[in-house]
Each structure stands twice: as C-alpha cells, then as structure tokens.
Amino acid sequence: MSSPFVSSRRRDRGRTAPPPPPRSPAKRTLAVRDWAELPSDILLDVFLHLGPLEVMLGAEQACKPWRRVALEELTLWGRVGLDERGCGDLRGRRYLCDVTGNMWRVAVDRAKGQCEAFKGCCNDEDLLHLVERAPSLKSLSMKHYSDHQTGEDLLDALKKLTLLKELEIDFNYYRIGSDDTMLQSICKACPRLEELVLMYLSAFDR
C-alpha cells in the first residue's frame, strides 16, 4: 500500500496552486483522493473487469499513469474480444462490430504475441493477422466467418495455430446437412483440439 504519502508529495510540487482545503466531514462525499495514484495492481483488476475495448476508448486516456498500466500489463490483452458487453452504447463511437473489427488488431498487437483467446468478427485477412501476431492462441471463436467456401485458407491458417484447444466458427453462409469433410480436415489440422463447434446460417437468421 503506497498511498497517502505519494499524494501529499504531489500536492507539494504544485508551486502556484493554493494548499488543498482541509477535509471536513461535510465534504466527505466529494472525491478528494487522486485516483491517478491508485496502485497499479488494483487498477489492472479494474481494467480486467472493464475489458480491453472500454480501457482503450476511455480509461487509458484519462491520465498517463493509467495508460502506463494499460500498455505494460500484457494480461489485459491476452483475451481479446471476450465478454465485451454493452459496447453498442458508446456514444460517438462506431457500432460494435466495426469497433471490435478494428480495435482487436491494436489489442492483439499490444499482447506482444501472448494473446491466448480471441472472439470476434473475422475474415480470411483477419485470420492471417491472428496467425502472425497471436501464434499462441489457445481459444478462437470467429463470428461471421467467410472462407469463400473453399476452406483451404482456413485450414492453412489453423495448421499454424499449433496450440489451439478450442475452436468455434460461425460461418456466414447456408449449409444443408452436416459437413463431415470440414470437421475431419479441421481435426487433422489442429491435433490439440479439445472442443470444436461449427455453425452455419439457418433459414431463420434472415
């Protein structure tokens, strides 16, 4: 615990600023603590609750110490796109899929190769970016994935993600009946796979 001394030192540094008013019980509800001084391990916990997208668009821009925590703590970027809830309400920002569609590249890059889980909208080009920048992925969930129905690029990419344990692909095209060939090829490409879910559009989706 570092706190009271740090903040008083800070106040002393301000040359022209008047001394802070003494705390009276009546004023206790106003924030007096300097939250920029929140210990970094606690702030990381808060950021993990908040999720990478919210951290990027709001909290890390509040002050330098907070941004430092965001950039230095690789664990924050280890699970990109997961549990991003309520992103649609962010005023003045693009829609969920657009935002996550762009933000995840920055997030994955910030993990410096240590990203272990990804969930989000994904096309072949996005998948190549993941293979290159997140080679240690263990869990991958691709939404609205389109491989132009050949499957070759998909299998090539999956072969390179050698640590993959969980894979979920939500294809953006229709299919009648089960796709045994695709299932078998994926299982061959990813020997460590423990869980595999393939989903296709149904007639009810549109």
């Binding site: 924030a31 300097d34 939250w35 920029a36 919210e54 709001g58 909290a59 509040a62 962010l90 005023r91």
Partner: peptide, 13 residues
Amino acid sequence: GKSPDQIREVFNI
C-alpha cells in the same frame, strides 16, 4: 461507457 473527460471528472483526475 464514459469518455476520458467524464472519467476524469468522476475520479478527480
């Protein structure tokens, strides 16, 4: 859901 400005205001930063 808050902007950086709003966050600064809430947390006295």
